[in-house]
């Protein structure tokens, strides 16, 4: 079937099987390799993208779900002003080690900053609870998100 959607701000049309996973569409059809597959069952968050502005695990979203919608991936979001600021924050606290989970953390944090952005540790933990990191531990990630929350407030 023909799928029409907006991908990182650009209108695109794709011929796709209706059940093809959004994750595979991004990687195979658009060569957007930032979005990663780890568990493939919605438990790890490595494949997180925004669908109509809301975070989803793209391994559990099908082509047919995407039709008529807006998809934003780490590639698109990292080029925005907020995205660039967020990268700096992750950088400063050395939050990233192997990096495999990070596009997912980036997208979840981006959504949190845009829709809440409160500097409260419990809220930050909840917002990132769908993303799993198996190397750095979470402390540095939370530290950088706190910095990002503070900077976003100043920026406003």
């Amino acid at each position: 079937m023909k799928i029409r959607f907006t991908l990182n701000g650009k209108n695109v049309v794709l011929e796709s099987a209706p059940l093809k996973r959004l994750l595979d569409i991004l990687r195979e059809d658009y060569h957007l390799f930032g979005t990663k597959e780890s568990c493939g069952e919605g438990e790890c968050g490595a494949c997180t993208v925004l669908l109509d502005g809301k975070p989803v695990t793209s391994c559990l979203v099908n082509a047919i779900h995407v039709n008529g919608k807006k998809v934003d991936t780490v590639e698109g979001l990292s080029k925005t002003k907020l995205g660039k600021m967020l990268i700096d924050c992750f950088d400063e606290t050395n939050a990233v080690q192997c990096g495999f989970c990070f596009p997912g953390f980036f997208v979840s944090t981006y959504y949190y900053l845009l829709n809440d952005g409160d500097n409260d540790l419990e809220k930050i933990k909840k917002a990132l609870s769908g993303n799993i990191c198996r190397c750095t531990g979470y402390q540095r990630i939370f530290d950088s998100v706190k910095i990002a929350c503070a900077r976003k407030k100043v920026g406003e």
Binding site: G42, G45, T48, P55, V56, L60, V61, S108, S129, G130
Partner: peptide, 12 residues
């Protein structure tokens, strides 16, 4: 409901 799933799954 706050005990269910994760913020990534509640969307769908």
């Amino acid at each position: 409901l706050t005990n269910f799933a994760s913020p990534l799954l509640t969307t769908m």
